[in-house]
């Protein structure tokens, strides 16, 4: 790896000021599980890395008033084992448990994962299911955007060079809504992940959220598919099939090592149905 300078700020303000100073030559460094791989292979090169792990404000996972807050320093393992997460959103813990391997989870951060925007990854599609938002700091102030707005493409976010995601806020699913997340793949990284959250009243879907990861270029909310489900009978298999069909049609998949676009769209169809069934099942339980 090319040599780099290490910057170790202790406050958010220092962090963004340093980023601003370094411009294109600098990059935030959290777990480094994606960034350092890219730097080792020469895909990315930076003169300076700004270590967020020396900033105490960015630490931890907490819960209050129906919202989980995941700080920029919180690793996948921290989230996976957090008592708050296990108590209020066990689905997040179980999906985090299946991220990469234990070593990566012990080092890599959830926020870093979102900001690196590797498309073949689960946290993005999972957090979309929760309509999570991120808080962003920069020298000119703070702002918040949804995870959906944060990730705009493969390895691409809407962040400016001097912006820092300080935390991700995850509102719990509304009362009565149950979620499921299914992933599929046979390579090291996932081929596809489908999130489904549903609430059911009188045998009909009241509210539905469907999200898709890994197969499309970025984590995607499948609103057209959601629309056909709302108000439809839960036990009508044709509805889930139709939702799957619409989701598949809307999936901007490409041919790659993980499979052809055609196969991925087929998988979307299958897993939308399966994720819906599982979410409904959890609601029944």
């Amino acid at each position: 790896m090319r040599p780099f300078r290490l910057y170790e700020p202790t406050t958010i303000n220092e962090t963004v000021a340093t980023l601003s100073e370094l411009g294109d030559d600098g990059k935030l460094y959290a777990g480094g599980t994606e960034l350092l791989l890219a730097m080792k292979t020469g895909l990315l090169q930076y003169d300076g890395l700004v270590n967020v792990k020396t900033v105490p404000e960015l630490e931890g996972v907490s819960y209050s008033n129906g919202t989980l807050t995941i700080g920029a320093r919180a690793t996948h393992s921290t989230v996976e084992h957090s008592a708050d997460v296990l108590a209020h959103a066990p689905l997040i813990a179980s999906v985090e448990h299946r991220v990469a391997n234990v070593r990566v989870r012990n080092v890599g951060t959830v926020v870093g994962n979102l900001c690196f925007a590797e498309p073949h990854s689960d946290p993005g599609a999972l957090l979309l299911l929760y309509e999570a938002e991120v808080d962003i700091a920069s020298p000119s102030g703070t702002r918040s955007v949804s995870v959906e707005q944060l990730v705009v493409g493969p390895y691409e976010t809407s962040l400016a060079g001097d912006e820092l995601v300080t935390r991700v806020r995850v509102p719990l699913l509304p009362n009565g809504m149950r979620g499921a997340y299914l992933k599929f793949g046979y390579h090291h990284r996932p081929t596809l992940g489908v999130g489904a959250a549903v609430s059911v009243t009188d045998g009909k879907f009241l509210d539905v959220r469907l999200t898709l990861g890994s197969a499309p270029p970025k984590p995607t909310r499948m609103r057209d598919a959601e629309a056909v489900l709302r108000g439809a009978a839960v036990d009508d298999p044709a509805v889930a099939i139709e939702a799957g069909r619409i989701a598949a049609e809307g999936c901007d998949a490409i041919d790659d090592l993980h499979g052809s676009a055609e196969y991925k769209r087929h998988l979307v169809q299958v897993f939308v149905q399966r994720a819906l069934a599982e979410a409904v099942e959890r609601g029944v339980k």
């Binding site: 290490l6 480094g32 599980t33 350092l36 791989l37 080792k40 792990k53 393992s77 990469a100 391997n101 234990v102 070593r103 990566v104 012990n106 080092v107 090291h188």
Partner: peptide, 26 residues
């Protein structure tokens, strides 16, 4: 050298990490 194989596993404060990628300063 990509955190996949685990041959470089060491424990840091009891937790396994990939020493091939974790910087020494950590």
């Amino acid at each position: 050298d990509m955190q996949v194989c685990g041959a470089c596993t060491v424990l840091v404060d009891g937790l396994p990490v990939s020493a091939c990628t974790v910087p020494a300063f950590e």
